[in-house]
Every structure is written in structure tokens, then in C-alpha cells.
Design a protein around this nucleic acid. Structure first.
Length: 664
DNA sequence: CTTAGGG
DNA sequence: CCCTAAG
């Protein structure tokens, strides 16, 4: 009973926006926009009256519109010509329109014949329309009228009232030859838009006429034909076509308008939409690009309408509700033919969408990462993504697989990569979200170097749980004795918590490490080189960065410095001041390290040995530093909290400067 | 969130 | 390094 009509006004960017208001306004007073593609949705009531589409309806058609729009954008160049041919192809039953080929040669003599033909058609259409109306409920169908493709060459409808005129005309006309019942003759009918004033003729006669006229009609189709017409002739044609006079002097416009209508009729045949499950589906546009310029016009063939009427009568409300679109019911034969192409198209659409969206996102993310530090938002986005992926199986205890399976969405990967790329240095924000995916990307970026580790990481993750302990130790080689000594593996396995913090940090860390190593190779000697950052899957589904990032001498020095300035305990301050460039060191890390230093210093003092006493794997801490630590420790104990505040300010400024000078 | 402490 | 309890 209702038809949804979408009018595309050529405003490429506004499809989605176009809402009810627009549709209504459009109908009453179309905007004059040079090349705007605007879709307007309206519903055609049984009585032929147009009603603005509701939001729901819009939503239903949204995909379609979007698609359409896109398509248009891309294929805009394809001329009507192509569209026609395609149409022809796609719908064997439909009009056999030879678009440009014949038309090019068309002469005025033919024109007249064509006009005549058109008139006849119009009449027929009108007649059909009436029948349809009489029937009352055509069923819910969506019609997308594309007034014109704004894109470039395609004929554009600039006319002010085009939309509505066009619209009105089209609606009544409805589609022609979709259904087989009419046979070949009916096929010829281009469901052109036409005035409702037409007379009613008997179907049989009409069909006959059409069949004979068919050739001419085809001729008419192309723009070329129109080109040869004078304005007056165009006016005539226009009148015939649209059932009304026009005062427009613009030849171009007239041609376009007429061409459009014709095209649409063609399209009608070729293009059909099916409503399924409340969704509008475009049928068989694919075969041709024609849709693009021609615009998708879904219409209900007159014949179909008849059928619809029947159907409706048979299955009243339910039938409609099912949303068996006209095409579905009436056009079945057609459908079959077009199904294939339709499906392809659909697939294409989907593919396109999929691709598109990701791209957009990707871009956004990149920009985000660039603009900011990459943390906050990324995190959020990542999170959401993760959730999505994970949703299937949230977390099953210690899930190692979880990680590999659900956790590594491609998209995320990209985004991460992108973000990671930009973040070589620093993120003051504590640790970033865990990112396993980054690794690959990093590899690309950094090419060789230390990334093999990353590979290791990935493996670990994927393998699910190789326990990092072993992994780490192997890879670590000489880095941290502490780790080795510890029973980390066991612990981690038990825990398996997904931490958000680190995945990214690893990357950063590496990078930073590298920088650091370069900057201060001397100090580091043994440990700085790199680390292996291993991520351990946790029960919660997060990954935790398990491995140690060995503390470099430089870091230790900074830490000591920071402590001396700000005092022990003000870890966050120190972190901010002195470790801004080390994203991977958290205030807690600092604290821990300090604790260790104190221990070490005391131990050393006791043994009096210094570095030698230390275990081979450990970083030798220069005596001076230990001494200083000792001093500070003493200081702290002596002067707990009192002085901190006063010094704090001073520290800040200095620290920052130092930091910068050193690392930037 | 930052600290402090235990593991 | 991780985790948790406290403030």
C-alpha cells in the first residue's frame, strides 16, 4: 500500500541527513542546487498522496541510499548510455533500449513517432496507475528516485521544481514491464513518469501499441536524440513526458530532464528493490552501471501493481507486512533473472561498506594518535573493539586461546599499528592499552632490528600460553636475573589477567629503548639493548606486559635525581618530571626500583663490594649512584615529608628542562 | 589516582 | 614486575 520514494536530488553528501523534513520540503519546493544529491524519502499512500518518510522508514532505506550514493560517486562518469545498456542487459524482459546507438541517428521524424509512443505509454501508465490505486494497496515498496547524479557529466537536474515534478510524475507512473504477465509487449513499456491525467486505455490495445512502437522508443532514449531537438520540441517532449508544460528555456535542462525520465523508466525495469525483513534491498542493479547515473529507480510496474493488488487482496495486511516488495511478488520472474546480479551487487555493496568503514576509522584513529598521545582514545576504541571481539567468549578462566582467537581483530590491528607508529616517544599517560597487534606493524615500520622479539611476543600470545617464563628467559638472555630467579611463569599463568596497560607500551618501550641505547650506549652496555616484552594473557582477557624492561643506568640516574629533588615517595612527580620520556615506567615502577636500589645500596654498603658482588646478570650500578641512593635514603628517613612541598616546584621546572635536553 | 607494601 | 589495600 505504501511506497517509499526516495528522491535523489543530487546532493552527494546528504543522503543520510535527509529526513522527513527534507522530503516534505523537497516535494513542495525542491531546492535549486547545482549538483546536489539529495535523497528524499516519501511514502506514497494508496491514494497517491505523498507522505514524508518516517525515521524508521528512513532507517530501513538508509543502507540503500548510502549505497546508492556511493555508487553514484564512483560511477558518476558512466553515462546514461552505459546505464541503459546495462539495464538492457540486466533485464532481458524489460525494455530493450538501445541507448545511444540508435538514438544518435534519430531524426526528428522519429521523434514524433517517439513522442507519440510516449504519449501512449503515458496513457497506459496512467491507466495502470488508476487500477493500482483502485486496488488500494500495492504493498509496501520503496522507490528511490534519483533525479540526477550530480556527478559530473551526467545530466543533472537543476531545475527548481524538478524534484517534485519528477517525483510526482514518477510515482503515478510506476513501473511498467516488470512482470511477465504482460509479456514482451509490456516489457517495452518504460514506466515513465507521467501525468496522471492520461486516459485509460485497455491494456490489450496498449500493449499492442507498445510492441509496435518499441523500436522507436528505444531510439528516443539517448541524450543524443534530444540533442537534436529544438527547444520547442523539447518542450513538447517534456510535456508529453511529464504531462505538464514547462517554461524552462534551458535546453540542457530539458534534455536532461527528459532523458532522466526516460532513463528512469529504463531503470525501473532494470532496477527493483525488494523489501525484506523491513529492509530495502535493491535488486539487480548491478549488472550495470546504469544505476549510477540513471539513478535507482525502483518502481512498481503497472502490471506488477495489478498483481500486487491481487496479492494484497489475498493476503491483506500480512502480505504487506511481510514486505514482499512489488518486485518480489510481481516481479518474481524478474527477480530470478536478476537475482544473481543482485546478489553480486549486494555483496559488492557490503564489501564496499566494509572497506569504507574501516578506512574511515583507520584514518580517524591515525589522526587521533597523531594529534594526541595516542592513548586515551585509542584505548577506548580499542576497548570497544576488544569487547566486540571478545564478546563471544568473554573469558574462560585462564584463556590463552582467547587472546589469539578473539582478541586480535584486524581492524584493531591496523589502528593500533597506526597509532603505535606515531608514538615513538612517550606517552605520559601511564601504560597504554595492550596491543599485540602492534607488533606486526611495528615490524614493518622498523623493519629488522629488535623486532624479532615482537614476533616472539606474538607467538606467545598466539600460542596461547607458552609460558612466558621460558620464553622470556631465553630471550632475555642476560637481562634480568631477578626475573629468572623468580617464579614468574607460574604466577602469570595463574593470573592471566588481561591488562590493558601494556601492549602498547612494549612497542614504545622498544623504541624508546633504542633511543636510549643510542643516546647512552656507554652506560648501558649490557642490559639496555632490548627487551623482550612478553605479553601474558590473563584470565580477565587482558594482556599484561610481563617482562621487565631492564633499568638502564640512565634511568637509575634519573630516578636518583628525581628522588633527590622531589624526595622519595613522590613517585608520580618524579615520573612526570624525569620519566616523561619513558612511557613504560610508571610511578609504581619507580617506587619499586627505588626500593630495589635501597636494598642494593645497603647490601653493597654492607659487603662493600660494589658492582662486583652483584650477580652477573644484573646491571652493575656504579658505586657513586649507590652512594647517592644511600644518602637520599638517609635523607628521606631523616626528613620525611616536610621539605618536599617547597622543593617540589623547583624540581618541576628543572626536571622538565633536564628531561627535554636529554631526550628531546 | 597515587602510595605503600607484599608477592 | 604485579597486585592490592589505603588514603
Amino acid at each position: 500500500m505504501e511506497m517509499l520514494v526516495g528522491i535523489e536530488d543530487n546532493d552527494e553528501g546528504k543522503l543520510e541527513e535527509s529526513g522527513i523534513d527534507r522530503s516534505s520540503s523537497a516535494l513542495s519546493s525542491p531546492k535549486q542546487i547545482a549538483n546536489p544529491v539529495v535523497y528524499k524519502l516519501v511514502r506514497v499512500e494508496g491514494d497517491g498522496r505523498l507522505v514524508p518518510a518516517t525515521d524508521d522508514e528512513l532507517i530501513e532505506v538508509e543502507d540503500f541510499l548510502e549505497f546508492d550514493q556511493i555508487e553514484m560517486g564512483f560511477d558518476a562518469d558512466t553515462g546514461l548510455h552505459e546505464g541503459c545498456s546495462s539495464i538492457e542487459r540486466s533485464s532481458s524482459e524489460k525494455l530493450q533500449l538501445e541507448c545511444l546507438e540508435d538514438t544518435a541517428e534519430a531524426d526528428q521524424g522519429k521523434l514524433n513517432a517517439r513522442l507519440q509512443y510516449i504519449e501512449q505509454m503515458l496513457q497506459k501508465v496512467k491507466e495502470e496507475e488508476k487500477l493500482r490505486l483502485a486496488c488500494a494497496s500495492p504493498g509496501l515498496s520503496y522507490v528511490n528516485v534519483d533525479s540526477q547524479c550530480s556527478a559530473a557529466d551526467l545530466p543533472v537536474m537543476d531545475g527548481i521544481t524538478q524534484c517534485d515534478a519528477f517525483f510526482q510524475e514518477i510515482i503515478p507512473s510506476s513501473a511498467p514491464s516488470l512482470n511477465n504477465s504482460h509479456s514482451d509487449q509490456s516489457q517495452n513499456i518504460g514506466g515513465c513518469s507521467r501525468p496522471s491525467e492520461g486516459q485509460m486505455e485497455s491494456g490489450s490495445s496498449t500493449s499492442a501499441v507498445y510492441s509496435t512502437l518499441k523500436p522507436d522508443f528505444s531510439m528516443i532514449k539517448g541524450e543524443i536524440c534530444l540533442d537534436k531537438l529544438s527547444i520547442r520540441e523539447l518542450h513538447e517532449l517534456f510535456k508529453v513526458t511529464f504531462g505538464r508544460e514547462t517554461t524552462v528555456k534551458d535546453k540542457q535542462w530539458l534534455k536532461r530532464r527528459i532523458a532522466m525520465s526516460l532513463t528512469n523508466s529504463c531503470n525501473v525495469a532494470a532496477t527493483t528493490f525488494i523489501v525484506k525483513d523491513n529492509k530495502l534491498v535493491k535488486k539487480c542493479e548491478e549488472g550495470s552501471d546504469g544505476n549510477v547515473d540513471a539513478v535507482l529507480f525502483k518502481d512498481i510496474a503497472a502490471g506488477e501493481e495489478d498483481i500486487n493488488c491481487k496479492d494484497s487482496s489475498c493476503a491483506e495486511g500480512t502480505g504487506n507486512e511481510d514486505n514482499q516488495v512489488v518486485s518480489g511478488k510481481t516481479l518474481r520472474s524478474h527477480e530470478v533473472e536478476h537475482d544473481l546480479c543482485w546478489e553480486n551487487r549486494q555483496i559488492e555493496q557490503r564489501a564496499a561498506k566494509r572497506i569504507r568503514k574501516p578506512t574511515r576509522r583507520y584514518i580517524e584513529e591515525l589522526s587521533e594518535s597523531e594529534s594526541r598521545d595516542h592513548n586515551p582514545r585509542l584505548l577506548s576504541s580499542n576497548r570497544s573493539m576488544e569487547l566486540e571481539h571478545v564478546s563471544p567468549n568473554p573469558y574462560n578462566g585462564p584463556t590463552k586461546n582467547d587472546f589469539s582467537e578473539g582478541r586480535t581483530p584486524v581492524t584493531r590491528f591496523d589502528s593500533l599499528g597506526g597509532s603505535s607508529i606515531y608514538i615513538p616517544c612517550v606517552s605520559r599517560i601511564r601504560r597504554c592499552r595492550p596491543r599485540k597487534n602492534i607488533m606486526p606493524l611495528m615490524n614493518d615500520m622498523m623493519s629488522s632490528q629488535k623486532f624479532r622479539q615482537s614476533g616472539g611476543m606474538v607467538e606467545v600470545a598466539n600460542s596461547s600460553n607458552k609460558v612466558f617464563g621460558e620464553h622470556d628467559s631465553q630471550e632475555d638472555e642476560g637481562r634480568d636475573e631477578v626475573l629468572k630467579s623468580r617464579s614468574l611463569p607460574a604466577k602469570f599463568q595463574q593470573r592471566f589477567t588481561f591488562e590493558q596497560k601494556d601492549e602498547q607500551s612494549p612497542t614504545l618501550d622498544r623504541i624508546e629503548l633504542r633511543q636510549e641505547s643510542r643516546l647512552r650506549k656507554a652506560d648501558l652496555s649490557s642490559n639496555s639493548s632490548d627487551d623482550n616484552i612478553v605479553t601474558v594473557p590473563t584470565s580477565k582477557g587482558g594482556m599484561r606486559r610481563k617482562h621487565h624492561r631492564a633499568w638502564t643506568l640512565a634511568e637509575v640516574v634519573k630516578l636518583v635525581e628525581g628522588v633527590s629533588r622531589c624526595g622519595a615517595g613522590r613517585w608520580s612527580e618524579i615520573k612526570r618530571l624525569s620519566f616523561a620520556s619513558y612511557s613504560y615506567r610508571t610511578s609504581v615502577d619507580l617506587k619499586d626500583k627505588w626500593r630495589n636500589l635501597l636494598k642494593a645500596s645497603s647490601a653493597q654498603a654492607a659487603s662493600d663490594e660494589g658492582m662486583n658482588s652483584r650477580k652477573h646478570g644484573t646491571v652493575p650500578i656504579p658505586e657513586p649512584i649507590l652512594v647517592r641512593v644511600r644518602e637520599l635514603a638517609g635523607k628521606n628517613s631523616q626528613v620525611p615529608a616536610s621539605f618536599s612541598s617547597s622543593k617540589l616546584t623547583a624540581c618541576t621546572g628543572v626536571a622538565d628542562d633536564d628531561d627535554r635536553s636529554e631526550y628531546l
